[in-house]
Design a protein around this nucleic acid. Sequence first.
DNA 1: AAGCTGGACAACCGCACGGTG
DNA 2: GCACCGTGCGGTTGTCCAGCT
Length: 286
Amino acid sequence: MGRHSCCHKQKLRRGLWSPEEDEKLLDHITKFGHGCWSSVPKLAGLQRCGKSCRLRWINYLRPDLKRGMFSEEEDRLIVELHGLLGNRWSQIASRLPGRTDNEIKNYWNSNIKKKMKQKGIDPDTHKPLKEDHKVTAATPVDNSNSSFATEQGLSHHPLGPQPLWFELMNYNNNNNLIASPVVNLPRDEACCFQALQCLEGGGGGGIMNPSNSSGSSVNSMSSGMELQSFNSPLMEMSGGMLPWPDQLLLLPNKGAEIHIEGEPEDLKWSEYLNGTIRCLTSSQHH
DNA sequence: AAGCTGGACAACCGCACGGTG
DNA sequence: GCACCGTGCGGTTGTCCAGCT
């Protein structure tokens, strides 16, 4: 395929946008909306292609954009979501209000990738890089600022390397879980609450109804973990009233630790969750 | 001061996909 | 079914700028 048709035409400006062009585009979209992007340049009096206008609006002019540095929380979320979704930047961006896919992609390539490599983690696979990057169990571990699955965590686990979510978890020196990956939850309320109770260390609680328009909700937990639940078709179908999501992301509050205890025979995770999530029992834990 | 380098960010390009006639 | 068009996505390239030599 050749160039996009809208870029074929001559006399179209390219490169960086001037403040005057920004003003024209902003003014036009504020007044009339963007409608059909291919007609925007003409209507707004711009010598640009529609595609360029769309990109400029989405990545720079949109009023709901959050500018500036990424917070630690956003940092952590990007890593967790990338572990789950890969390079699906638009999907990752949809979980971070005010951030664009382009922004996250750039941040990933210029910043997070580097950080992960320094930690000995392959940013593509989220797994340890090489043998010589391993840190032995005897090495003191500082997880105070960690958002990545670590070789320390794996070597600490008494059962050795574990599949699926075990591999992505963070543990400190005492084998206490400090972060988890996104966890797929069952489409059944009772099972969902059992899952939550397990993840909370046997305590009560649950997932709150969605608290914002993006379809995600956050529930601070007594354990020091924060639950972030994601859109589910069920929620969307019910207008956001159903209390359980498809996926659950456990994020540790700053400096918090969590113990997970419970008896697998009561919960039968493999039956509920097709092996996607496993219960860390007291015996495995110590 | 001039040139070089690397990081951060903006913008472009090619492609895939869905809608429409 | 096919061609065309518009849109969105992800990879890549371009641009700017600060820091260094």
